[in-house]
Amino acid sequence: MPDNVLLSAHDLACTRGDRLLFKAMNFGLVAGELLLVQGGNGQGKTSLLRLLTGLSRPEAGEVRWRGQPIARCGETYHREMAYLGHANGIKDELNPLENLRFADGLQGRAFDAARAERTLGDLGLARCLDLPCRVLSFGQRRRVALAALLLAGATLWILDEPLTGLDVHAVAQMEGLLRDHLAAGGMVVATTHQALNLAGVRVQRLLVGNVAIPDIAASPDPVAEGAA
């Protein structure tokens, strides 16, 4: 494995209940690289992502960040990692700005209101700043969560189906954000059922589970995939 590998998995195994989801999984991710996790429903994509965040512990093997097992460098790792799961992690009672303020508080950072407003504006939420998230649409709430991700300033993004609920325009914007992040030396681990246009991006693909699926995404041209 090359020296500049930041995130690596070593002989990972994961079980859910009695079922072995995967074992002996190995990969290494360098700066500027995207890891696309593929596999059918229930094959363990989300489980793998949760292992990578450190939320759950592997049955065997370990995940390392900068060569250190993440179980032992949780603080450093969580400072450099941002996770966006199926749930957005935003509170319906708070407005987008308040949600971002809390996200900054979690990181122990001072809140930069101007920057937060700018980010929300870039994501097309300029008119929703003082509305409680409860009244926003699904896609809008997803974009608030994306704003929190952008503001976290993390090196590594771990994204579980980041495109769910986004319209065509927002998907294109998201692709742009991913490209920018990777170009700036960031790293992304993502699962997605949708096609991604990622021209010029270093992509590593990882198949989870034993059901082979057609070659999607990661190709220079967007290729549509069937049922999600």
Binding site: T53, G54, T76, R79, Y83, G85, A87, G89, K91, A103
Partner: peptide, 15 residues
């Protein structure tokens, strides 16, 4: 837990 913010809080750098 239901809206996912608990995971974000647990994943913050603070203990």
């Amino acid at each position: 837990h239901r809206d996912g913010s608990l995971e974000h809080m647990v994943l913050s750098p603070e203990p």
